[in-house]
Write a protein that binds this DNA or RNA. Structure first.
Lengths: 342, 342
DNA sequence: GTTCGTGATATGAACGCTCAAACAGTTTTG
DNA sequence: CAAAACTGTTTGAGCGTTCATATCACGAAC
């Protein structure tokens, strides 16, 4: 253990009370229940608070009140070679939404040798946070089961199995992809392919379901191709194979923009022009796709709305004790660009 | 104000003490100074702690000890249209490094109408955190001046003006770009261009300096082109102009991978083949560039080492009260790929 | 004129922990 | 062999809040 330098103490409620010539409680009331003070006292106290730069000590307040005003977000264990490019934007939106309500986001991850559940338990037992925000939810996510069982407040970006209805928010991937397929059908495409990654993301299944539903609805011939993982090389290779097959599809629905990037590369290698020889649509709207030629038709994730919905649901549980009994499905925004063809 | 549901209290040190038949302090010692206990007592107490699932209340501990084991990271105010794609990776690395030492990262941002300094002051006055981690440092960053003046622990990813030596960590962009230019010189390029963005990032100046130094050292003809902002459209347009000029450079040094993406698009539009008609090198190594054809030669940011250095320096200040009097300059890793040509 | 409310402020206790000091027991020391 | 030193443990206090309750002044009601 290293020596710990004692942090110098700041100005306390006692100091303010003395300076203002009133009691501690009056200062506390000035901040937490101003209506209890006589207008004149309030004014004087507020001035002293301002002058001394007093802020209630967060720890003392938490200890007494039992509330921390902190939300934990377990950072997804990201493949460093392939970090989620939307992570920054999502966090930004979450921090903004939480900050609006006076909450802050604490990033956590299990220490080495610790399971995800143990990491959650530690935070609960130490009363470090008021609730959890989860993302990258698996179909049968142990974290959801655990928190749900412990009765601890949380909100999840993504659905688990629908057995026990939790407080989740998700994007309507199914409808989004149906819309994409509709777009292709309207342009006369009959033979379309779905490019999926088998990396195990549950939303990929939804997107696949959307594809199948769309294909059925419009009476198209739909085939599904799967890439083993998220590795760029693999994606390009698999797509080239798909494009050089005997009966080439005239359109591809990529399960995500990341996969679509591979299609651009593969098409160029095969001498096909996207938007002319091959229609391409995808999902996510990564900012980086703005550089693609032709620009990519895709479904934009409403990150801001997702974050707001997650935070608002979580705070409802934390502050009002009301657990929403149903999830919230948010529509993606269809962004039509030239890659889908004329 | 909304009603607040009182959080049910968990198991306290008192409960454990009673169950183990010893005093509070012995439990406290078992966790904070185990060597003080008789081996036998320690074993018994540890068992009871385990059994009851006891974790010291974070707030109570903080209140008494004055230390929070939390580091604040003010999230950069990101352009939502162009979020930093490396943000996720950087945060991941920071969370890992901090977690290793038992610290957690608290994301903060100023509330509406609050200045950055005010937001910092609030956290300091409320004793919510032990220190700050800053990134996206400006040449004359008000946050650095403020924290430095207040004597509050912080570590910065990026340098300010060198007047007062602070605890910073940065990437040696100058040397990195010099290396890139050297690569081009070795391949016989004489006319090279530097593509910069005028969005105001201070590290862009370093990269420019590196370019100028490299060009001087190798006796090349170097020209500098500037894009007004980080908008993809603007980048492509500016690059096309540069490529269609009377005397076209044979090589381009892009100030960042993001800019290089524009060069790929512009080159294709101009019918130039990168790696053959035009050499291209850049800086950052965004994961997304793995899809580019030909693959991009670039300098990889050592995010993990940066995060580790930042955290280790910050903890030195927090725990030992030792403020490093000099910055740390980390080398980038030159990653040579086909875009630079044969 | 005592009682009763009511609004404004004050007081004591408690939240759960760790620090400093005190306390027994045992061993070492001059 | 008494004093000193060490070991392992306990006790009392206090960190800075807020909650519940008490106090006080003052006018309204009977």
């Amino acid at each position: 253990m290293t020596t710990r330098r004692p942090r110098e103490r700041g100005v306390t409620i006692e100091d303010v009370a003395r300076a203002a010539g009133v009691s501690r409680q009056t200062i506390s009331n000035a901040l937490n229940a101003p209506h209890r003070l006589k207008a004149e006292t309030l004014e004087r106290v507020t001035a002293v608070i301002e002058e001394l730069g007093y802020r209630p000590d967060q720890s003392a307040r938490s200890l007494k009140s039992g509330t921390r005003r902190i939300i934990a977000y377990p950072t997804p264990v990201d493949d460093p070679a392939n970090p989620n490019p939307l992570m920054g934007g999502f966090l930004e939106a979450v921090v903004a939404a939480a900050g609006e309500a006076g909450y802050r986001i604490l990033l956590v991850r299990p220490r080495p040798g610790q399971s995800q559940e143990q990491a959650l338990d530690e935070l609960i037992a130490a009363r470090t946070v008021d609730g959890f925000l989860l993302s990258d939810i698996l179909r049968d996510d142990p974290r959801v089961a655990h928190l749900s069982g412990a009765g601890f407040p949380f909100a999840a970006f993504g659905r688990t199995t629908p057995e026990h209805p939790q407080s989740w928010v998700d994007v309507d991937s199914v409808q989004g992809v149906i819309d994409l397929v509709g777009l292709l059908a309207a342009r006369g495409h009959r033979r379309v392919a779905f490019l999926a990654s088998a990396a195990g993301q549950p939303w990929m299944d939804d997107r696949r379901d959307g594809f199948l539903a769309g294909v059925r609805r419009h009476g198209l011939a739909g085939h599904e191709y799967s890439v083993p993982g998220d590795d760029p090389g693999e994606i390009v290779a698999a797509t080239r194979e798909l494009l050089s097959g005997r009966v080439r599809p005239t359109a591809i629905v990529a399960g995500g923009d990341w996969l679509a990037l591979g299609v651009y590369a593969a098409a160029r290698a095969e001498g096909l022009e996207i938007g002319a020889d091959l229609a391409l649509v995808a999902f996510d709207d990564l900012p980086i796709t703005a550089f693609l030629q032709p620009a990519l038709t895709t479904v934009r994730l409403p990150l801001r709305r997702i974050a707001e919905a997650l935070v608002s649901r979580l705070l409802q549980i934390i502050e009002d004790g009301v657990t929403p009994q149903a999830g919230l499905l948010l529509p993606g925004e269809l962004v039509i660009r030239p890659s889908v063809g004329p």
